[in-house]
Structure formats: structure tokens, C-alpha cells
């Protein structure tokens, strides 16, 4: 464990807490893409298949359980909660996320570390996580205005993978034979996808103005 990875995990945790705060405090999920939340639930469920077979550390197990439980809780809340579900932007959240699932699965069949069930689903979860934010970014683009908590949620969600890139660079220089090409390349793509959001987020922060995304 190094400081970059710990910072990344904490930033990821903060993004989930901000999302839960937004939904429970405002009793609204406007501006939140249900499709992105479903993709994230799928990412965690397929990545942590080794939850009960490979014990890494207490921290690792607890964080995996938190990520799985919180992502499922958000999806269930957005689908079932009678007040929250009314604020879901159903007609704006129309990204065809099934294509992202299909593309990630096909790529995982082609590019993986070992052609086994667990490794293919691990690679699938890595590729899918890189693309999972797309429905959310498209929804924000369409809705134009970004409320503070939603903006902070997406910002922390993007920042966590940037910390992981620093973690992979650090591990590359401090550990022999460290090579995580699948996670590194995918993590880079994931962070780049946030680039324009980060730019407009920074501009709005600098001007202390409400964040606007160009339609």
C-alpha cells in the first residue's frame, strides 16, 4: 500500500459518500445517471469475484464490501424509492450502455492476463469502469447545469483514478516485475474521459460561478 493508492481509495470513498449525501439529503437523484450507477455496480460485482477466495487484507475486504453495497444501494434507491425515483431524468439518461457492456466483454475475451473465468471478468470490470462514466457525462452535458454535489461526485470519481495512475508509476519504480498494463492503459483512458469535465469544473471553481457545460 502506498500513499497514492490510499489517497485514491479515500477519494473514491468520498465520491460515493457525496453521492449518497446528495440522494438522501435532497431526496433527489436529478442529474445522476442511473445507467452509470448500474455499470458501477456491475464493475464491482465482476471485479471482486475473489472476495471470498483471496484474502489480501482486512482493509481490502472491507473496502470491497463497501463499494459493492453502496453501488447496489444507489441503484436500488434510484429504482425503488418512491420519492427519489420521481426525480430521475429518465428522458435525458438515454445512453445505450448495453453497448459499453458488450464492448468491454468482447475486449476482455481478447485481451486478458489469463483465459480463465475470474481473469476475464476482472479485465471486463477494468474496461467497463473506464467507460462507465460516459452516460453520466452525457447526462450532465444534456442537462447543462450541474448542481454542486453532483459536480463534486463526478470530480472525486475522476480524481481517484488519477491517484491510481500515480500509484502505478510509483509501484513501477519501486517493485521489480511490476506490470499492470490492462489497469494502467484503461485507467489512463478513464482519466482522459474526464478531462473536459475537469476543465469546466476548474473554470467554474476559478470564477466561483455555477458550473456550466456547453450544450
Amino acid at each position: 500500500m502506498n500513499i497514492f493508492r490510499f489517497a485514491g481509495d479515500m477519494t473514491h470513498l468520498i465520491s460515493i459518500l457525496v453521492l449518497l449525501l446528495k440522494i438522501y439529503a435532497t431526496k433527489s437523484c436529478s442529474g445522476i445517471s442511473l445507467k452509470t450507477q448500474e455499470l458501477y455496480a456491475l464493475v464491482f460485482l465482476t471485479r471482486y469475484l475473489d472476495l471470498f477466495t483471496d484474502f489480501i487484507s482486512v482493509y481490502n475486504t472491507i473496502m470491497k464490501l463497501v463499494f459493492i453495497a453502496s453501488s447496489l444501494a444507489v441503484v436500488c434507491c434510484m429504482r425503488m424509492h418512491r420519492v427519489v425515483r420521481r426525480s430521475y431524468d429518465k428522458d435525458l439518461d438515454t445512453f445505450r450502455h448495453y453497448f459499453l457492456i458488450l464492448a468491454s466483454f468482447v475486449l476482455a475475451l481478447l485481451v486478458n492476463e489469463k483465459f480463465t473465468f475470474q481473469e476475464i471478468f476482472w479485465a471486463f470490470s477494468i474496461y467497463l469502469e473506464a467507460l462507465a462514466i460516459l452516460p453520466q457525462l452525457v447526462l450532465l452535458q444534456r442537462s447543462g447545469n450541474v448542481d454542486n454535489l453532483t459536480g463534486q461526485y463526478v470530480f472525486f470519481l475522476g480524481a481517484y483514478r488519477a491517484f491510481y495512475i500515480l500509484n502505478w508509476i510509483y509501484r513501477y519504480f519501486t517493485e521489480q516485475h511490476f506490470s499492470r498494463w490492462i489497469a494502467c492503459v484503461s485507467g489512463l483512458v478513464q482519466t482522459v474521459l474526464y478531462a473536459d469535465f475537469f476543465y469546466y469544473y476548474f473554470i467554474s471553481w476559478k470564477n466561483n460561478a455555477k458550473m456550466q457545460l456547453p450544450a
Binding site: D54, E113, K114
Partner: peptide, 10 residues
């Protein structure tokens, strides 16, 4: 085929 890594990251 890529080298198999230990999945110690989240």
C-alpha cells in the same frame, strides 16, 4: 498473453 498479476488493488 500478459503476465498474471496479483489482484491486491481495489
Amino acid at each position: 498473453c500478459l503476465q498474471e498479476t496479483q489482484k491486491d488493488e481495489l
